[in-house]
């Protein structure tokens, strides 16, 4: 099963490598990872998406907790939470498909952030399903490039399960 794990870590050099090394050293896979400062500049927040059975996830969270630079580990599956990811997608639709691309972007509440004679670059934010759906719709349009931020997640206030 897929889990989104949220970490608070000391904002020091080498921390990302320690976290990544834990996964690679034990043969666990990181599907996506995003890192950024929190409002406290000494603390960074990491969001890692990984998958495994309960046994693997238990090991991953314990091992993460054991890392000296890790302050807090939260498995988002245990909480009601909001997840978002942003993608930038560059498509090169045939002239007759251009309108469709613009319409779909609108429906998905995306934005055109760059355009050229042949291409549009679209920004889409959303949860996993929405992103997946949009990418699927763009596939026949001719995707030239796709970049994604990786997921970030936050717990809903006062909804600890």
């Amino acid at each position: 099963m897929r889990h989104t794990i949220s970490l608070l870590v000391e904002n020091r050099f080498g921390v990302l490598s320690r976290v990544a090394g834990l996964f690679s050293g034990r043969g666990y896979n990181i599907e996506s990872i995003s890192v950024g400062e929190t409002i406290d500049p000494q603390i960074s927040q990491m969001t890692i998406v990984t998958s495994g059975d309960d046994w693997v996830i238990e090991q991953i969270t314990k091992q993460l907790n054991k890392l000296i630079d890790v302050i807090k580990v939260t498995d988002m599956v245990e909480l009601d939470h909001v997840e978002r990811e942003m993608i930038l997608i560059k498509v090169a639709p045939k002239p007759e498909k251009k309108v469709e691309v613009l319409n779909l972007t609108e429906i998905f509440r995306g934005r055109i952030v760059d355009s050229s004679e042949k291409t549009y670059t679209i920004e889409i934010t959303g949860d996993e399903d929405k992103i997946k759906a949009f990418i699927n719709l763009m596939k026949p349009m001719g995707i030239k490039e796709l970049v994604r931020t990786g997921k970030v997640a936050i717990a809903r206030e006062g909804t600890k399960k």
């Binding site: 080498g14 320690r18 000296i68």
Partner: peptide, 14 residues
């Protein structure tokens, strides 16, 4: 050496 010993130390410092 900090990179090399990261997986075999409890912790390391530069």
């Amino acid at each position: 050496i900090v990179g090399i010993t990261r997986p075999c130390t409890k912790y390391n410092f530069l």
